[in-house]
Amino acid sequence: MEFPKTTIIISVYKDTEALGFILDSLANQTLPADEIIVSEDGDSSEMREFIATQKDRFPHLLHLTQPDDGWWKNKAMNNAIQASSNEYLIFIDGDCVPYSTFIQAHAENAQKGIVLCGKRFELGPKFTERVKRHELTVRDIEKKFFWYLPFMIADDARHPEDGLTFKSHSFISRQIHKRYVRHIIGCNWSCYKEDFLKINGFDETYRLPAEGEDVDPSWRFRGMGIELKSCRNNANILHLYHPKRFSAVEGDVNKAIMEKHRAENAFYCKDGIIKES
């Protein structure tokens, strides 16, 4: 089977420790990414120094920065889309570690005119600390999922059902993927670059987390005739625990922006990759 050439875009902010676990996973994929872009919403010396230590391991690794001017992930991601060299884009967050089959699962489910939407399995605090202390790897959890499952549930893991892996296009996967997909989960999704350009990328009007990085592009894709399809339990990621970083108030601000744009049927955003003068 011939797969599209892939660029994986990792959204980061200063957390070099979590990025290290992600890169360890990307070094051991069943189908390696053709390009890796670390898209930093900021410009920290710690991240620059860490990336420099990874260049020999990943010659196809590109690190993009921008001024640290508060949350502006959408701008950083648009920069990464423009810089990407390949036809197929896979998006993850810098606190989410992919399973070993992650890239392959996205690539073998890829279709033009379709956005693939994955989920995330969220580790609890104690298991996250075990991973960070290198007592346990994400690969260990992937391989012995059912062994660790009751202990992870006891550690307040969230969405453990999304840690299960099934082969793409299998009978079980087809049944799972019949379910309606409401919107993208911003830490695990993919699409052809040409499809994203049809909606002008991420809307940079959003200057706060939530809505603008996942719900907003979802309805705009649909407005342009691009459908959302599940790749749940094929392309799996494991989210490392951390306290919640944004409030409901921020979500309300973004919802107001989104509802205004929806009322205008603004599927092609004005403040995206191309700026409307």
Rank of each mutant, 00 (worst) to 15 (best):
R57H: 08
V97Y: 00
I92D: 02
F50G: 01
T53C: 01
M77Q: 13
K119E: 13
I92T: 15
W72H: 15
G113I: 13
Y99L: 05
N78I: 14
Q111V: 02
K119M: 13
I90F: 04
S100P: 10
E108P: 08
C117Q: 12
I90N: 03
Q54P: 02
K55C: 07
K75S: 12
A105G: 15
T53I: 08
A52H: 05
K75R: 13
Q111W: 02
T101Q: 12
N79W: 02
A80T: 06
K75F: 08
K55N: 06
T65A: 12
N78G: 12
N78K: 12
G70Y: 01
I103Y: 11
P67W: 07
E87M: 05
V115W: 04
G94D: 03
T53G: 03
S84H: 06
C117P: 08
S85P: 00
H60Y: 12
V97L: 00
D68P: 00
K55M: 10
G94V: 00
K55G: 03
E87Y: 09
G70V: 04
L62K: 08
W72N: 11
N79S: 15
C96G: 04
I81W: 08
K55E: 15
G94I: 01
T53D: 01
N79R: 10
P59C: 11
A80W: 07
P67L: 01
A110S: 14
S100K: 11
Q111N: 11
W71C: 07
T53A: 01
K75G: 11
K75M: 13
G118V: 09
G113N: 11
H106M: 07
F50T: 04
N78T: 10
A52F: 06
V115R: 00
L64E: 00
L62E: 14
V115K: 00
D95I: 06
Q104E: 15
M77C: 06
F50V: 01
P98L: 05
R120T: 08
C96D: 14
I81G: 10
A107Q: 11
P98R: 07
N79I: 02
R57A: 06
T101S: 10
A110L: 03
Q54M: 13
L62H: 09
I114A: 05
L89S: 08
Y88M: 12
A76S: 15
W71D: 06
H60G: 02
W72E: 03
F102G: 10
R57F: 01
E108V: 15
V97R: 03
D56L: 14
Q66G: 04
Y99F: 15
L61V: 06
A107W: 02
A52M: 01
K112T: 10
I114D: 11
S100R: 14
D95W: 07
E87I: 04
